[in-house]
Design a protein around this nucleic acid. Sequence first.
DNA 1: GTCACGATTTCCT
DNA 2: GGAAATCGTGACA
Length: 196
Amino acid sequence: MNFQPISPDFFQQPTIELARNLVGQYLVHQHAEGLMVVKIIETEAYMGPEDRAAHSYGNRRTKRTEIMFGEAGLVYTYQMHTHTLMNVVSGPPDKPQAVLLRAGEPIIGQELMGKFRGTTPMKNWTNGPGKLAKALDVRMSYYGHHWSKEPLFIAPGQRDIEIEIGPRVGIQNTGEAVHYPYRFSEKGHPMVSKYR
DNA sequence: GTCACGATTTCCT
DNA sequence: GGAAATCGTGACA
């Protein structure tokens, strides 16, 4: 299989639709030790100023959220405890929105992913945002990278995937934002992350 | 400079 | 099911 970066135009769509349309696409990482590809099976939208669960709620602009005020399609990496999470910046520059990549299915490079994931069973390699980043060895250094450029990019994948929509996971004390249906996943896929 | 905390994962009971 | 791990970020002085 040969993977080509998706057109930058792909990111020019409303955040909700982008989150939905990212499910089924390929996430490609040309790592120094080998090629790794996963199919994206779960995402979440973060709607910026109006979304209490978003880092950019109320247009909060800091060194960390700065990237969300930039061009759609940029990489927003964020460190949570010991883990790195990957986001796709979305929306026009005056709307600091983003899509969190929550889970994927290994397609290519399973050996290498296994190496980064240690003794974890294969089913649990990429079924969570922190796990996904670790399996692909994505670090904070990708902050500000563009998702249509090597060595880390989105490639066109499966179309017409049946999408399941639900509330987001792992956010607390954010009022009504907890219930927003901003979580998108491939219906019935065994590797989507679990609810708590 | 100090301090509290989080869009999570893993280990232990 | 509960708690620790562990550090960048943001608020405040």
